[in-house]
Structures are given as C-alpha cells and as structure tokens.
Amino acid sequence: MSTRELRRIALDGELTIMTAAEQKERLLAALQGSGGLRVDLSGVEELDTAGLQILLLARREAARLDLPFELGAPAGNVAAVLALAGLAAEEE
C-alpha cells in the first residue's frame, strides 16, 4: 500500500453545508485506491461545521485504511477554524 502515491486534491470555494454532500463524495472517492490523501485547502474560502466534519470523516476513513491524510495550506480564516477545532494543517 505504501507504494502507492499520496494523492493530492484541491478543494475550493466554500466547504460548508451547501457543498458538503458533494465534497464528501469527492473526498471519499479520492481516497479510494490512493496511497493517502493530501487536501489542499488554499482555495477554500469558507469552512463550517458541516465542512469540518467531512474533513474529519475523511481523516477517519484514511486512518481506517491505514493511509496518511494531510491538510495543507489553508487560508487565514479557514486556518483559524481548523486551529479552533484542533485540526492543524501540516507543512509540506
């Protein structure tokens, strides 16, 4: 499994209840068959609880599959939310 590559995925726009269903499918699909996931959050402008729990779900799925899961490069306000929720982004 570790031979497979860390897949990068960039989310943009809002990661909120408005887009949660769609983003959930994207993240879970991206995780399938990958060697782990690095989610680029630089394009995300807004993050709410719905978005946060999608990220948490994805992280848990990754852990279940024993795959690495990284969050990267959030913009200021999104970083603040992640910090508040205790989800730190990791430097690349």
Partner: peptide, 11 residues
Amino acid sequence: AEQMDPETCYL
C-alpha cells in the same frame, strides 16, 4: 462513511 449524512451534525 456510507451512513453519514453530510447535513447532519455529528460533532
């Protein structure tokens, strides 16, 4: 993951 409803709050 399958049962998770993205619009429901679980946290």
